[in-house]
Structure formats: C-alpha cells, structure tokens
Amino acid sequence: MSVEKKLVRRGTKEEAPVGSPAEQAGPNALLEQARQFAAVAAEAHRECEEIENAEQELQRRRNTSGE
C-alpha cells in the first residue's frame, strides 16, 4: 500500500480511542489481571474517609502550572 493511502487511513475508526471500563462491559481478561495484581488491595487501596470525599480531596490537590 502506498504511503498516501496509508495516510488517508490515519484517523479512521481503526485509530478511534478506546473507552473506559464501564463502556466495555463483559468478559475482561485485563480485569482478572487487575484483581490478581491488586491481591494486596486491602492494603493497597485506601478504603478510608478521604476517598469518600474524593471530589473535595481532588480540589485540595489542585496545582499551578510549572516546569
């Protein structure tokens, strides 16, 4: 295939972004990996009050631009 034809194909459905997990319900091999990887989850996840006020906490994490 010529470079021109390949260029035309850029940006088509083939390159469409993949959605979030909720948009991809169904059997999920990656989710199974996630469960196993986070087997330490009881320790790794902060099931604490802070996460219940996540929106508020997000605002407290706001930053300015930098470099």
Binding site: S20, P21, A22, E23, L30, L31, Q33, A34, R35, F37, A38, A41, A44, H45, R46, E50, I51, E52, A54, E55, E57, L58, R61
Partner: peptide, 29 residues
C-alpha cells in the same frame, strides 16, 4: 501498567468508572 491495574481493580470494587472522583484521586495519589 501498575497504575492501570490498580485503577481497574478500584473501578471494579466500587462499580466506578475512570471519571469517578475517587478513581482520579487514586490516579493522582
């Protein structure tokens, strides 16, 4: 990759999506 698995597991546990504030907080933290 480690963060993706961490967030996916969090989504599954909470029935959340990536847009959920708790997941974004976990992303940042």
């Amino acid at each position: 990759a480690a963060k993706l698995l961490h967030l996916l597991d969090l989504c599954a546990r909470r029935g959340a999506t990536f847009a959920d504030p708790a997941v974004r907080l976990a992303d940042h933290d």
